[in-house]
Design a protein around this nucleic acid. Structure first.
Lengths: 109, 109
DNA sequence: AACTATTTATTCGACATTTACGAATTGTAT
DNA sequence: ATACAATTCGTAAATGTCGAATAAATAGTT
């Protein structure tokens, strides 16, 4: 039963890539996850999830040109695919639906 | 690094229990997950996640009285704890925040 | 120019946690 | 005994996690 659902980190990574525009690559994605989700994560974990999302066709990638700065290797830039967008939308609808069934009162015990 | 985050299924299960009131136990939770999330899942998977959520103190449980029907064993009834509510809220805020940064346009390519 | 060091970045290999299922067990009513 | 409702157990697959290895670029040295 592989790739049937979006894992917790997978969904976050997809959302982060969708937030970034033309500069979504490993290092920046790691920083954004750490800042926006208030959680620490290593760069290898990030690359791992990016690769898995690519295999699932939720992300597509291309290499940038190297930059002039010291150590400026080419970067692997990511973009959310249509399938990725669909997966995100489905997930959001499902969760919004679940939340809509929870009265405020339930959280006021 | 155990229990640092709410897994994908863990979050769904928590939300489902929050939706149910006084009848949140294995079988019913399984049915609700299948209906509301349009996905199939076995009863053992459900019990497994319920147990893990209990160990993390996101759920609390008590046994009901046996019922009069044939095979009516006592049921293990679940309720979301304060910590569980907090975890759900945190997760929701994080995701809402991420979605707020994605312009509609980004999904109209 | 050729080396070596430093920097930015990605890839690899291994392990931990979560998700998933079928089978076994428990307790109740017929 | 048998059938039924429910939970628990054992194991495998998918996802999440990290440290170390590798790759490619610039800066400094000789």
């Amino acid at each position: 039963m592989k790739g049937t659902h979006l894992g917790e980190l997978e969904e976050i990574a997809l959302l982060i890539v969708a937030n970034l525009f033309d500069n979504a690559y490993g290092v920046v994605i790691k920083q954004e996850i750490e800042e926006k989700c208030n959680r620490s994560i290593t760069i290898s974990t990030v690359h791992n999830v990016l690769q898995r999302l690519s295999e699932k066709d939720f992300l597509e990638s291309r290499y940038s040109e190297p930059t002039k700065e010291r150590g400026g290797k080419r970067k692997l830039l990511f973009r959310v695919t249509r399938a990725g967008q669909a997966a995100l939308s489905t997930s959001k609808k499902m969760r919004d639906n679940l939340w809509s069934g929870i009265p405020e009162i339930a959280f006021d015990r």
